[in-house]
Amino acid sequence: MTALAFESRRLGWPALVAPLFAVLALCFFGLLSQVIGAPAQTDRVLSAIVQVGSMVGGIAAVSAVASDPAIELRLSLPRSVRRSVLLRLLLALLWSSAVIGFATELLHELGRLTSEIPDAPLADQLEWLPPLLLLAGVGALTAVATRAATAGAGVVAAAWVLSNLLSQLWSSVTWLTPLWIALPFDPADPARWYWNRITVALVGMACLAITAVLLGRPEHLLAAER
């Protein structure tokens, strides 16, 4: 086996299965809406993949940076822990993105995506990709900074639920709106939405960069919460 194969095993099957599970769960509920006579809701349920995807990616990222049982041994090896963990993180993000991106594109092609975003190439992908980067960044950073994976998962889940609630409040707090991952698209002011996507993605990447820096501090990594 190669290093990539070993790192994907270290990432663990739950992180790889979670995005598929999310897609299947939404398909199930979409089907259920159809069966019980609420077909109008089917597309809304299926389209929820663009919201759920970011949360799934965030928790997969937390799994990728969770503490390593052989950390002391790993720190004594020439290949750095940072490199290995970042490879796992990259795998988690690429896999989640591939599944969510494919599902979004498929729904778009089938005309089932209830989005108000204009029909520009890849515009639908901007609904979930920047939020995924932000939640992955915040979750991974929290997990590594506190050396507690549960803290990372808790923060991702709370931030995701809160972002999908209380829309009026998110809109009213000017300094927080650029970080609102569920900002609705406003056809009257598309630039605001696009700027939001850029800000959200950049903040997510900044969090991932800080995570990478922290992963280079061995004494910090030795003190994991269990």
Partner: peptide, 30 residues
């Protein structure tokens, strides 16, 4: 680290790997 062999007092291992796989993984990392 390139010339080191280290056995910590509390050696954590990956329980899902076989003995051979564990050694091969560490060899790759070495």
């Amino acid at each position: 680290k390139w010339i080191l062999g280290y056995l910590p007092q509390e050696l954590g291992v990956y329980p899902d790997l076989t003995g051979t796989e564990f050694l091969e993984y560490i060899a790759i990392l070495k």
